[in-house]
Each structure stands twice: as C-alpha cells, then as structure tokens.
Amino acid sequence: MLKIFINPGHDMDLDPGACANDLREVDIVLAIGQEVKNIMEGIGYPCQLIQSDNLNGETAGKPNVCGTANASGADVFVSIHCNSAANTSAKGTETLIYNIGGKAELLAKCIQAQIVNSLGTVDRGVKTRPDLCVLRETIMPAVLVETAFISCEEDAYKLQLRQRAFATAIARGITDYEKLL
C-alpha cells in the first residue's frame, strides 16, 4: 500500500490563505485533509498530515513540510488548497504538478477526475506550476489540489457543506492512481 503525505495548505497561526464568503481556506483544507487521512487509514493506508506555512525551512518553530515529507518515506504527496480570484464568477477544480509526464501527472489526473465527477465542479484541468515549493522540493510524486474557488459563492457552498465528498474524491483518486502503477 502507498504511504500518503497530506499537506492541508497554509497555517492556523500565521497564514489563513484565501478568505471569502465568511470562510477561511486554512480551516476548509484542514477539515478535508483530516478526512482524507481518516478515509485512507480506515482502508489500511499509512498517512502523515502536516499543516504549516514552513514549506522548506523558512519559518523557525514550525514543521518543515517538504523536509518532513521527504524524510517520511511517503510514496505520494498531496497538498490541499482552495482557489480564489478577484472575479467571483471564477469556479472549478484544478490540480497542479511540477511538470508534465510521470507519476505526478498520473496522480493529478486521477484526483482531478474524481473531484470533477463526484462534485460536479468545473474541470479546470491539470496544470504545471514549477514555481511552487511543495511541488519542486518534494522527492515523491507531488500534487497540489485546488479543490474549488472560495471566492465563488457556488463553490464556497460546496467547500463548506461537502468537505467529506471532496475528501472521498481525493482518496478515490489516490486509490485509482495506485491501481494504475
């Protein structure tokens, strides 16, 4: 079984992430991440979860996300976020990877398909983001899931009321990926 490293984005104390529609990204993604962990552990997958703004050793006193993930022996890294835009009609799900090709792209496609099909979000696709530390500095296949737009009222409703559905879709995406290896 795959060993899963889950990284709900941002930090409770220092960086709430995107805030809109009376929601904070940090709270939403922690709830989804904890539920992914519960689901995966419930079916036998070992998991580790860290939420911290210290992505690569830049914030003293906080867990180092990339360093801890790299030392954990994890087979996959899944960072969970909410998207936001000034245009409040922007909506949907996208999954980010370091580059095209390889296992990270396969994992991203599996998770993306499960979220879009399960929750009916707009499919914004799999996109490359080599500038993101958690994708660049991790040694295992890594994805950053932008679950939905917290700034869009329709998506915010899903983020608030369908967290278990997001978590279940992410978990199914991970198991779909494992079947393809």
Rank of each mutant, 00 (worst) to 15 (best):
P130K: 11
C133F: 10
E154K: 09
T147A: 15
T128V: 14
G120N: 15
T138W: 04
K109S: 13
L135T: 04
K109Q: 15
L119Q: 06
A108Y: 03
V122S: 06
E153Y: 10
C110P: 05
C133D: 11
L132M: 09
E146L: 05
I115K: 00
E137N: 12
I139P: 03
L132Y: 05
I111C: 05
V134T: 10
E137L: 12
K127G: 11
Q112C: 06
V122E: 04
Q114H: 10
Q114G: 14
F149V: 07
G125C: 10
I150N: 01
Q112V: 04
E154G: 09
L135D: 02
E153P: 05
L119K: 04
G120D: 14
T128G: 05
L132G: 02
V145K: 00
L144D: 00
A156C: 11
V116D: 02
L119V: 11
I139T: 11
T138V: 15
A148C: 09
E153T: 15
L119P: 03
I111Y: 03
E154T: 14
C152D: 08
L119C: 15
D131V: 10
T128W: 02
K109P: 03
E146K: 04
V116I: 11
L106M: 12
R129Q: 12
E105F: 04
E105D: 11
A113L: 12
K127Y: 09
R124G: 08
V126F: 06
G125E: 07
I150G: 01
E153F: 07
I111R: 02
S118P: 14
E146S: 05
G120Y: 08
N117W: 08
S151A: 10
D131K: 10
V126C: 12
L119W: 05
L144S: 00
D123L: 02
E153V: 14
L144K: 00
T138F: 07
G120V: 13
V122M: 07
L135M: 10
V143W: 03
V145R: 00
A148T: 01
E146I: 02
A148K: 00
K127A: 14
R124C: 07
A142C: 10
V145T: 11
L119T: 10
E146M: 06
A108D: 08
F149G: 02
I139G: 11
T147I: 13
I150F: 06
L106E: 13
T138Q: 06
A148L: 03
C133W: 13
V122L: 09
S151V: 06
A142I: 11
M140N: 08
R136P: 07
D131Q: 15
T121N: 14
V122N: 07
P141V: 07
T138P: 05
T138D: 10
Q112S: 08
E154C: 05
Q112L: 10
A156D: 00
Q112F: 03
Q112K: 12
T128I: 13
D123Y: 02
C110I: 04
V143A: 12
